[in-house]
């Protein structure tokens, strides 16, 4: 299937550092659905991690990427919601504020770059929704996952602040739900679905961070979800890497596999767990995969 969409892929820092399963599965499903990816000619961190200490530095780092992308004439697709949010926000800020734009452009000029504001940034979830579309995804599904009941965690930076993200409803988001249901799986509602996973508090207060993640896992368990589906590198690390730790620390038992959405979609598109890097996941997925296989027979 082809829908002629072509994007620069903006990997960000966390994905290549720690979450290759997300990248592998995302590239596979996007290729299958006709979204062509081109690598960034040059890259630096989007700037978000430094925003707390220097808004100015964040603006320069983000606009460098936008200016590099402008030269290629392509729009940006990101895997990380933080990168998408930052690039979107900075585009809007600099387009609206001429004085600031001139100041930043004076900084960029030194390395032959200029921000004009022509690039559109979309997170993979938005591309799947808007460019590919739920109907096309449904048509491409060869192994409907009708035996699955899962829960979703969209993550803060795909939703808020609504003024800059301007996509989906931050209080009752539907996009990821629709994308999950396109695979044939049921997506369950649970308490505080839009709440933070806790990842940004890691390192500042692990106690707060882990309690936030625990709260979410409790709510997901309450509705008997067979898996939790994320679409963010940080949210995934927060749940998948820490689930066992949280179980030990708070004397809980979850056993909830945490899947990147493209992994779930990939299965429905007929790809094998190995191709989708299931082996990179920390929480055991063997029971889930068995349920899928038996259900599909």
């Amino acid at each position: 299937m082809s829908n002629n969409s072509k994007y620069l892929i903006f990997l960000g820092c966390a994905v290549p550092y720690r979450v290759s399963a997300y990248e592998i599965s995302a590239r596979k499903v996007l290729a299958k659905l006709g979204v062509e990816l081109v690598e960034m000619p040059e890259f630096n961190c989007c700037g978000l991690p430094l925003d707390p200490v220097s808004h100015e530095m964040m603006l320069v780092l983000a606009s460098r990427n936008l200016a590099v992308a402008e030269k290629t004439g392509l729009n940006i697709l990101t895997l990380c919601p933080g990168c998408a949010g930052t690039l979107k926000k900075v585009t809007k800020i600099l387009k609206d504020d001429k004085a600031l734009r001139e100041k930043i452009n004076a900084q960029l000029k030194e390395s032959g770059l200029e921000f004009k504001g022509t690039v559109v940034t979309k997170h993979i979830m938005q591309v799947l929704m808007e460019d590919v579309g739920v109907d096309n995804i449904k048509k491409s599904v060869v192994k409907p996952l009708t035996m699955l009941k899962v829960a979703e965690h969209v993550g803060c930076h795909l939703l808020r602040p609504k003024e800059y993200i301007g996509f989906d409803n931050p209080e009752d988001p539907q996009t990821l739900k629709k994308l999950i249901e396109a695979t044939g799986a049921t997506c369950l509602d649970y308490i505080d679905e839009t709440e933070c996973c806790g990842a940004p508090s890691v390192g500042v207060s692990d106690k707060v961070a882990l309690q936030l993640a625990r709260d979410k896992l409790n709510h997901v368990k309450m509705v008997d979800a067979q898996a939790l589906i994320t679409i963010c590198a940080f949210c995934h690390i927060m749940f998948d890497t820490n689930e066992l730790r949280i179980e030990k620390m708070f004397n809980e038992a979850y056993g909830i596999p945490i899947l990147h959405y493209p992994q779930l979609l990939g299965l429905a598109l007929g790809m094998k767990p190995d191709e989708l890097a299931f082996n990179e996941l920390r929480v055991d997925t063997s029971k889930l995969l068995k349920q899928i296989n038996e259900g599909a027979n």
Binding site: L11, P16, E39, M40, P41, E42, F43, N44, L50, V53, S54, E56, M57, V60, L61, R64, Q107, L108, E110, S111, G112, L113
Partner: peptide
């Protein structure tokens, strides 16, 4: 992985307080 350009990054950040 796409490469960073440390020299260009430094140039762009010249004068940034942090």
């Amino acid at each position: 992985l796409p490469k960073g350009n440390p020299e260009a990054i430094r140039k762009s950040l010249k004068g940034v307080n942090f």
